[in-house]
Structures are given as structure tokens and as C-alpha cells.
């Protein structure tokens, strides 16, 4: 049952044809682990909080830097030097105090992921490097949790929705560890709207999945080129010998 205030707060999404009270209730009951509170995490978290996802767990061990404000809209000048997860949680609660937000001031490790996986429904990979992404992929597959991956650098954004229950390949079937180039926002720069596009894709796919009003297109790499204003899409086949998803 939604309260009168909830009806009012979520009225505009309840007006969307496929979205109803049951969908809203599903969001309210959902827990989402957002790993990384940079450009991707900020974009995704604010829309998931606004939409009424019941519990957001936001993990980031980093502090806000002045150079983050250009593309990480959850932070204010006063947050510079403060932890990102805690600053993001504070800001998100001013947007929606009806939901739970757990800031996790840690760096992702296999042991930490192992402890968190059982209590969340889905994971948003909002991190910034290939080794961490491969670690999250392994944990998501081990614990059978859908994984929504965003990535961005320069003028490029990428998005992938992975379901351990589907027959497509996983992140380790897409990129090999030695394809790590170290290209990140420090070397290649990043435009705010480009990283937000990837984060919003993550939020939208999560919203569809959690409310059960639409099925994400699993196992597809979506690639956005800002210079061309164009998306391309590629299937990720399962590798027969993949150590993460191969035996499924």
C-alpha cells in the first residue's frame, strides 16, 4: 500500500502507462548496490533515489575533489575533501528522505562484495578500472545477481546489462585483463553529459528490471560516441572456456 504522500511524490511515474502501484511497491522493496560514486554513480543514484528505490548502498572510499564538481552533481563545493559515499548519501536524503541510504566508505574487495551480495537485488558497476570491474563481474555471477555496467572516457560511453541466468557472455567474455589501458578521466578527460548518459542508462535499466515493467536487453554492449551522437550495439557471446560464466 502506498501512502497518500507517496502517490503524490511518485505521481508522474505512476502516470506512465506500464508503471503502476505494484511497480512502485517493487521499487520500494528493492536494494541496489552502487559501486563507485563518481560520474556514473552520481547520475544513477539521483534518479534511483528520486524514483523511490527503497535502499541504496553506495560504496566509495575516495574523497570529493574540486575537479569532480564538473561532472558529479551530487557534490557541492563544501563537500570537497569529504568522503564521496557519505556526501552522496547526505545529498540524496535531501532529495528523498523516505528511502534508506547506506554509505560504504570502503574500496571494493572480494570479501566485502561477498558480504554485501546476499542483501542486494542488483549491482550497478560505476567504477573506473578494468581489474575492479572484473572482480565485480565475478562476484555478481557467483551470487547470481544482475549487473548493470556503465563506463565512460573522453567522448565515449558504454553500457551493459548482464544476467547470470541468461546464456550470453559476461564481462570477462568481453574484455581480457590485458586490455586494460589505464585510459581514465585523468589521461583522456571526460565530458559530464557523456558519463551521465552511461549512468542514466544504468538507472533506467535498473528501474525497468526492479519494477518488472520491462526486460533489459541482456548481454549487449551499447557504445555511445558523443562526437557522432550515435549508439552502436554488439552481442557478447559466451566463451566456452570462461571461468566465470562458462559452466552455466
Amino acid at each position: 500500500m502506498l501512502t497518500k504522500e507517496m502517490y503524490q511524490r511518485y505521481s508522474r511515474q505512476l502516470l506512465v502507462e506500464q508503471f503502476d502501484e505494484t511497480a512502485q511497491q517493487r521499487l520500494h522493496n528493492a536494494s541496489v548496490l552502487i559501486i563507485g560514486a563518481g560520474g556514473l554513480g552520481c547520475a544513477a543514484a539521483q534518479y534511483l533515489a528520486g524514483s523511490g528505490v527503497g535502499h541504496l548502498l553506495i560504496m566509495d572510499h575516495d574523497n570529493v575533489d574540486l575537479s569532480n564538481l564538473q561532472r558529479q552533481p551530487l557534490y557541492r563545493e563544501a563537500d570537497v575533501g569529504k568522503n564521496k559515499a557519505e556526501s552522496a548519501a547526505r545529498q540524496l536524503l535531501t532529495l528523498n528522505s523516505e528511502i534508506r541510504i547506506s554509505p560504504l566508505v570502503y574500496q571494493a574487495t572480494p570479501a566485502l562484495l561477498e558480504a554485501l551480495m546476499p542483501v542486494v537485488d542488483i549491482i550497478l558497476d560505476c567504477t573506473d578500472n578494468l581489474p575492479t570491474r572484473l572482480m565485480i563481474n565475478e562476484a555478481a555471477y557467483y551470487f547470481d545477481k544482475p549487473l548493470f555496467i556503465g563506463a565512460a572516457s573522453g567522448n565515449l560511453a558504454q553500457f551493459i546489462a548482464l544476467s547470470p541466468r541468461q546464456r550470453h557472455g559476461c564481462y570477462a567474455c568481453l574484455y581480457s585483463p590485458d586490455q586494460h589501458t589505464g585510459n581514465n578521466c585523468l589521461t583522456q578527460g571526460i565530458l559530464g553529459p557523456v558519463v551521465a548518459i552511461a549512468g542514466n542508462y544504468q538507472a533506467l535499466a535498473a528501474l525497468y528490471y526492479l519494477s518488472n515493467i520491462n526486460t533489459p536487453e541482456w548481454g549487449q554492449l551499447h557504445v555511445f560516441d558523443g562526437m557522432k551522437m550515435q549508439w552502436s550495439q554488439y552481442a557478447i557471446p559466451k566463451r566456452a572456456n570462461c571461468s566465470i560464466c562458462g559452466d552455466r
Binding site: 563507485g36 563518481g38 560520474g39 556514473l40 554513480g41 560505476c126 567504477t127 573506473d128 578500472n129 578494468l130 570491474r133 556503465g150 563506463a151 565512460a152 572516457s153 565515449l156 560511453a157 558504454q158 574484455y175 586490455q179 586494460h180 589501458t181 585510459n183 581514465n184 578521466c185 583522456q188 571526460i190 558519463v195 552511461a198 557504445v223 552502436s232 554488439y234
Partner: peptide, 10 residues
């Protein structure tokens, strides 16, 4: 054939 950049930043 498409050749494109690996993107892992965020």
C-alpha cells in the same frame, strides 16, 4: 567489422 576503444573509466 567495428574496431573501437575499450572504455573502463567512470
Amino acid at each position: 567489422v567495428d574496431v573501437f576503444q575499450v572504455v573502463a573509466g567512470g
